[in-house]
Each structure stands twice: as structure tokens, then as C-alpha cells.
Simulated assay, not measured.
Amino acid sequence: MALAQTTSATIPVAAATQAACQFDTANSQPTIELPDYEAALAHTYVGEQAQVSISVYCNNGTTLTARKLGGMASATSKAAGVLVPLVLDGVANNPTINTLVWYTAGSSNTVPNGPYKGASRYVSTIRSGWPEASQFAAPNGFYTGTVDFTVEF
């Protein structure tokens, strides 16, 4: 009678991780809602008018090397803000008003629990305010525009 025999081999399994970051899915449509704009009073508006926070999660060991708003890493104050044209919705000839947008970098921390547990969380606040000059040519209505926020790692 023949007895069953066995043999085995050890198979190495290897993996490598790469630097990776992603925007928080809760920020899938971040929107800054500015208050009603009164062209005649624009010169009296100082500082920010509205803001939105954006969280970026990076795998452990991945560090953000740059944050850019409208392609500008230097847009970290209203004085250095990016001018963003807002277009009047649904109107021919696209009347626009302008707003300044800038960002501030918040602190980072390691996420203690949840779907991003162990990740490094980087928070940025995107801020917006009206420019100092009055814009009397702006007709009444609802205006929208966009600005890109990117992170490099």
C-alpha cells in the first residue's frame, strides 16, 4: 500500500506602497457661498466673506510638498489672493464680477479611527472675499465661478 506524501515550497509575497493622497469624499462638492454683494459698498468689505474647509488624506509617510490655489502656492492671504471672475448665470455676454480667493493651511494629524485610520490628514481652508474696488457694472442676479485647489506630494 502506498502512503500519501507531501512536499511544499515557500512562495515569497512582496508589495510596495507609493505616496498617495486623496480628497475627503465629504468634500466632493465644496462650495463657497458668498453673501449678497452690494457693488456700491465693495470698498468697505475687508477680510474674508465666506470659506470652506478641505481635508486631504495621505497614506502614512506621505507629506504634502505644496498646496496651490489657481496654480499659485503664494495665494495664502487676501493680499496675495487669486482673482476669480464670477459669471452671471443665464445671461448673454457673460457679465462678471470678481472675487479674491486664498487659502490657509491648517495643522495635520494622524487619523485615529474610521475609514482613513492611520492616514495623515491635512486641512486647508479656502477663503473668499470681494475685491476692494466697487463693481457698479454688475447687474443683479446669481453669479458662479470656480477655482482649482491642488496638492502636491
Score class of each variant (00 low, 15 high):
M1E: 15
A2H: 12
A2Q: 14
L3C: 14
Q5K: 09
Q5A: 12
Q5M: 08
Q5R: 10
T6R: 07
T6W: 07
T6M: 08
T7S: 06
T10A: 09
T10D: 14
P12A: 12
V13Y: 09
A16R: 10
T17W: 05
A20E: 00
C21L: 04
Q22I: 11
F23E: 03
D24S: 13
D24L: 07
T25N: 10
S28G: 10
P30V: 10
I32W: 08
I32E: 04
I32L: 11
E33K: 15
E33S: 14
L34V: 13
L34T: 13
P35R: 15
P35D: 02
Y37H: 05
Y37S: 02
E38Y: 11
A40F: 08
A40I: 15
A40D: 08
L41K: 10
L41H: 06
L41T: 11
H43K: 15
H43A: 14
T44S: 08
V46D: 03
V46L: 12
G47I: 15
E48P: 15
Q51T: 13
V52W: 05
S53C: 07
S55Q: 10
S55P: 05
V56N: 01
V56E: 00
Y57W: 11
C58F: 03
N59D: 11
G61Q: 05
T62V: 04
T63Y: 00
T63I: 03
T63E: 00
L64N: 02
L64M: 04
R67Q: 02
R67Y: 00
R67K: 13
K68M: 07
G70Q: 12
G71Y: 05
A73Y: 01
A75V: 09
S77T: 15
K78A: 05
A80P: 04
V82K: 07
V82P: 03
L83F: 08
V84F: 02
L86D: 01
V87S: 00
V87G: 00
D89G: 05
A92N: 11
T99S: 01
W102Q: 06
T104M: 07
T104S: 09
T104N: 08
A105M: 10
G106A: 14
G106D: 08
S108H: 04
V111M: 02
P112M: 13
P112N: 12
N113R: 15
N113G: 08
K117A: 11
G118V: 11
G118P: 03
R121T: 06
Y122Q: 04
S124F: 01
S124C: 10
T125E: 07
I126K: 03
R127Y: 14
S128K: 07
S128Q: 10
G129C: 06
F136V: 14
F136A: 12
N140M: 11
Y143G: 00
Y143D: 00
T144A: 06
T144G: 03
G145L: 06
G145W: 01
G145C: 04
V147S: 03
D148I: 13
D148G: 14
D148P: 14
F149V: 10
T150P: 02
T150A: 05
V151W: 00
E152L: 02
